[in-house]
Simulated scan of single mutants.
Amino acid sequence: MRSAARTASRATVAVLGAAALTLGLASSASAATVNRTISDGGSYTLSVTAPSTAPASGANVNVTGSGFNQAQGIYVGLCAVPAGVDVNNQSTWNSKPTPCLGGQDETGSTGASHWINNEWHWMSPNNASPYTSGAGGTGGFNVNIHVKAKINASVTCGQSGVTCAIVTRADHFDSNDRKYDVYVPVTFS
């Protein structure tokens, strides 16, 4: 009997410890929401919520969005903020966010980006999905991507003046369209 009580006690301590650890991890990663209103055959208020901090070694993070034109495919990923772009001033968002972690990952091999579109998502089932239906015919998404500070061999977030953000941007069918760029700045610890 004493052994069963000890086992139950240890199990309770383990569950409570795991819950405390999970709560600690959830509260240490804060999230930020950025909104942008655009005109593209209609008026769309884009909203993107993503973590504002992440571990430098890498982590899977959840990114949500709403208000998107379902006729425009987008990528969601971590990118370096281009020179001349101020993430706090949308009038400067006129340069393509690049380089991005994993590049333009159309195959889903890195998990570093996600392609949201309603027509071609079936071509890349590892990292693509259709928009979810939103208010007024707009589209949304809820995806997980992998982020880490080192984007490539020569670009690391937080080093040599490189700032980074979790971004949305028009997909490869319209990669020069800057209207769908939304920046949620992220720092790495």
Results as ranks from 00 to 15, higher is better:
Ile116Thr: 03
Asn118Tyr: 05
Asn127Val: 01
Val81Met: 02
Ala153Phe: 10
Lys150Trp: 02
Asn62Glu: 13
Arg6Trp: 09
Ser95Tyr: 09
Asn176Tyr: 11
Asn35Phe: 02
Ser160Asp: 15
Asn152Pro: 03
Val143Gln: 07
Lys148Phe: 10
Arg10Trp: 00
Val85Arg: 07
Ala20Gly: 13
Val186Gln: 02
Ile74Tyr: 01
Ser91Cys: 02
Val85Ala: 09
Asp174Ile: 12
Val147Asn: 03
Ala153His: 14
Cys157Leu: 01
Ala8Val: 15
Ala31Ser: 13
Ile151Gly: 07
Trp120Asp: 11
Asn126Trp: 13
Pro130Asn: 08
Cys164Phe: 07
Gly73Leu: 06
Trp115Cys: 02
Thr138Tyr: 10
Ile166Leu: 11
Glu119Val: 03
His146Met: 08
Ile116Met: 00
Asn144Gln: 14
Gly161Pro: 14
Asp86Arg: 03
Asp40Phe: 07
Ser66Asp: 10
Gly58Tyr: 04
Leu16Gln: 14
Gln90Pro: 09
Met1Asn: 12
Ala112Gln: 05
Ser129Val: 04
Asp174Met: 09
Gly17Asn: 10
Glu106Thr: 15
Cys157Ala: 04
Gln90Arg: 08
Ser39Leu: 03
Gly73Glu: 03
Pro125Met: 12
Tyr131Gln: 04
Val167Thr: 08
Ser52Asp: 13
Pro82Tyr: 10
Val147Thr: 00
Asp174Phe: 06
Ala153Gln: 14
Val61Pro: 03
Thr187Leu: 04
Gly73Phe: 00
His114Cys: 00
Ile151Arg: 01
Ala83Tyr: 05
Pro55Asp: 11
Thr45Asp: 05
Gly161Asn: 14
Ala149Arg: 01
Tyr131Gly: 00
Phe68His: 06
Gly24Glu: 10
Val15Asp: 14
Gly161Ser: 11
Ala149Trp: 00
Ala83Asn: 06
Ser3Gly: 07
Asp40Gly: 05
Gly65Glu: 01
Ser57Cys: 00
Ala18Leu: 08
Asn126Leu: 15
Asn89Asp: 13
Ser28Asn: 15
Tyr75Arg: 07
Gly41Tyr: 05
Thr49Asp: 15
Leu25Arg: 14
Ala18Cys: 15
Ile145Thr: 09
Thr7Ile: 14
Ala80Lys: 08
Asp174Ala: 15
Gln159Phe: 13
Gly77Met: 05
Val186Thr: 07
Gly58Thr: 08
Gln70Glu: 12
Ser124Thr: 15
Ser30Gly: 14
Gly137Asn: 13
Trp120Ile: 05
Pro185Tyr: 05
Arg169Met: 13
Cys157Thr: 04
Pro55Gly: 08
Glu106Arg: 15
Ser47Met: 12
Asn89Ser: 11
Lys150His: 13
Asp105Glu: 06
Ser175Met: 12
Cys164Ala: 08
Thr156Gln: 10
Arg169Gln: 15
Asp174Trp: 06
Thr107Pro: 06
Ser133Gln: 12
Gly58Lys: 08
Cys157His: 01
Ala71Asp: 12
Ile74Pro: 00
Lys179Glu: 09
Ala32Lys: 06
Thr107Ala: 06
Ala71Leu: 12
Phe173Trp: 14
Ala4Asp: 11
Ser91Met: 01
Ser39Thr: 15
Ala153Tyr: 09
Asp86Pro: 02
Gly108Leu: 10
Ala149Glu: 03
Tyr75Gly: 05
Thr132Arg: 09
Ala11Asp: 10
Asn62Ile: 06
Ser129Gln: 10
Thr33Cys: 01
Gly84Ile: 11
Trp122Phe: 11
Tyr75Lys: 04
Ser43Phe: 01
Gly67Cys: 01
Gln70Val: 11
Pro97Ile: 00
Phe68Asn: 02
Gly102Arg: 04
Pro130Gly: 11
Arg169Ser: 12
Asn127Ala: 04
